[in-house]
Design a protein around this nucleic acid. Structure first.
Length: 550
RNA sequence: GGUCCGUUGGAGAAGUGGCUUAACUCACAUGCCUUUCACGCAUGCAUUCACGAGUUCGAAUCUCGUACGGAUCACCA
């Protein structure tokens, strides 16, 4: 037995499986030509980030468009940062946005597929098989350097203006003999395992990125840690092993990973494995004091996907926005195909921009207003109720009290060519429809004040005239003719042109007459079409409200 | 400090040497329509593509330099 093997057996005596065993256990996937296998691999450190949703949405779409597989994997190798329960909420939120995995981690104790386990902390033995192999072949070695030594080393490098890290002559433990390593381990010293890089910083590696095209970077020469003292692998090593054995073809991830690309390339090459195709996605940005920076969960509400859920932005509208920043030709396609499902659009990597888009809430709002405005009444009522049950008990109670009434309210100026678009999110509903409900009206009415240009006498005069002819059975046209008659009687112009021509001759115009009625009935200067509002409130309630003022 | 990436209006962008007097979408402004608001319609909003130099009959598009912005350099992912 050679000494490398002895070292490997000393560290991992329990591991008897080989790489070949793993290759057999996780065979190449049987998929149609060109099918992409993609993944979303979050760490359970909090809630779903908008940038992560963006990346996972693209991964899923790429797989779907090619009849491939999109799977999820939980990267929980950092126990310190782990937030209990966040794995489940990650999956839950992903599903809410329609980014549903075909395979993989589906929540605690739930997974689907033959390439698992899909939770990294449960894959320790798999990683160990590969590390043992690397140890046996002197591709990796134990390192006994303490954190203090390492930070000391970094200070030296900083002062000498050299590259930071564990490489070349700085890689002290790479120079240790196997015999010495064995001895120190037998003495119970703490250690990690590092990859023995063969790279030379002065050479270049050529890499093809699916989005950025051909790039050249310096070769990796860092002896990175692959196995931590807690027995778990680092990200880089888990990426190598998992994406190989899960047979990932395309790794789509944020551009913050670009600098570690040479490292990953070397890792794959050292094992003689084909590296996946990489696609480094632009990061969504935000303007902060004139500078762009990454959307930050700490500073920006929009960075957490839960914000949009809580506010009640319609999922479809929000995803529409993500699509427009993902592929530059999407908006044009949407313009030509307003009625097709967005899934029918085919994504391509070369229509992705290279620098990150500034997150544009105004555009999200526009798209959401579009979606909500064009929903039919039934869907709108259902969806808003679904939202209310989860996020606004106040609205939910109101709806439950009288569902048909609620449907009528939200049906105003809906299901027509140019529908009304006054909601951008479900949380906008309640404040805008409160006045329909007596319990709110009776409270709010106490605070009503007429604007200066409506004197008390004028208000009374108009209301008195209206009471005389009050009739809700009329057609909209006849109803409006009543308004005009009242206008004439009380000294208002019946149309805008007359008033503009000779403003001195009138108290105002019909719109002022309508405004008086509107104020009394809705307590607001703006409301949906008054005629419909009154019809929905009904004769009794409308006369009650007018009566209150007279 | 090293390395990599990027730079077309307020935002997203099209454009890859002449068809560009720089598409389209959002925002903004003005006007029209209108019982208010929202909708809708119309018009306006980069004489110029970060800057400088070069190549060319011709450059937003090619080359070089400068500036600016971003990412990253952990036993975090």
């Amino acid at each position: 037995m050679n000494n490398y093997k002895k070292l490997a057996d000393l560290i991992f005596p329990e591991i008897t499986e080989t790489i070949e065993d793993l290759e057999r256990r996780y065979p190449k996937r049987d998929l149609p030509a060109g099918a992409k296998v993609t993944r979303f691999a979050p760490s359970p450190t909090g809630f779903l980030h908008t940038g992560s949703l963006f990346a996972s949405m693209i991964s899923r779409k790429m797989a779907k468009d090619s009849n491939g597989i999109f799977y999820t994997r939980l990267e929980d190798t950092d126990q310190k940062r782990e937030v209990a329960g966040s794995g489940d909420s990650l999956i839950d939120q992903l599903n809410k946005f329609g980014v549903t995995p075909d395979e993989g981690y589906l929540g605690t104790e739930k997974e689907l597929g033959n390439y698992g386990p899909y939770v990294q902390s449960q894959r320790a033995d798999i990683y160990k098989v590969v590390i043992k192999y690397m140890l046996e072949n002197n591709m990796a070695y134990p390192c006994f350097c303490s954190p203090e030594e390492l930070s000391e080393m970094r200070k030296v490098q900083e002062s000498k203006k050299e590259n930071f890290g564990y490489y070349a002559d700085y890689a002290k433990c790479s120079k240790l003999s196997v015999e010495e390593a064995i001895e120190r381990i037998q003495n119970g010293e703490n250690f990690v395992i590092r990859f023995r890089s063969q790279g030379d910083y002065h050479n270049k590696v050529a890499i093809d990125d699916a989005i950025r095209g051909h790039i050249e970077m310096a070769e990796n020469d860092q002896h990175l840690v692959i196995y931590k003292s807690d027995g778990l692998p680092t990200y880089h090593f888990a990426h190598l092993v998992d994406d190989h054995f899960m047979r990932t073809t395309h790794v789509t991830r944020g551009e913050e990973w670009m600098p570690s690309l040479p490292m990953h390339i070397e890792l794959f090459a050292s094992m003689n494995w084909d590296a996946p195709t990489y696609a480094h996605l632009p990061v969504i940005m935000k303007l902060d004091n004139g500078n762009r920076r990454k959307l930050s969960k700490r500073k920006d509400l929009e960075a957490a996907v839960s914000f949009f859920l809580e506010q009640g932005y319609p999922i479809e509208g929000f995803m529409e926005y993500l699509y427009t920043i993902a592929n530059s030709n999407y908006e044009g396609w949407r313009g030509e195909n307003p009625d097709l499902d967005k899934d029918e659009f085919k994504f391509s990597f070369d229509k992705m921009s290279l620098d990150g888009a500034l997150f544009d809430l105004a555009k999200v709002q526009f798209l959401c207003k579009e979606k909500l405005g064009r929903m039919n009444t039934k869907t709108f009522a259902e969806e808003s109720y679904k939202w209310a049950k989860e996020y606004s008990s106040e609205l939910a109670n109101l709806i439950e009290k009288n569902q048909p009434f609620y449907q009528q309210i939200v049906s105003i100026e809906r299901e027509k060519e140019n529908p009304r678009k006054d909601y951008e999110k479900y949380s906008d509903i309640l404040p805008l429809i409160k006045f329909f409900y007596n319990e709110y009206y009776n409270e709010m009415v106490k605070e009503l004040e007429f604007p200066e240009n409506y004197s008390l006498e004028n208000v009374k005069e108009v209301l008195n005239e209206y009471v005389k002819v009050f009739d809700l059975e009329l057609s909209e046209e006849d109803w409006f003719n009543q308004m005009k008659e009242i206008a004439t009687k009380c000294g208002y112009a019946t149309n805008r042109k007359d008033y503009k021509k000779n403003p001195e001759a009138y108290k105002g115009q019909v719109s002022d007459v309508a405004a008086i009625l509107r104020l009394v009935i809705t307590l607001r200067l703006q409301s949906p079409n008054l005629y419909y509002v009154m019809k929905i409130l009904g004769k009794d309630e409308v006369s009650r409200r007018i009566g209150l003022f007279l």
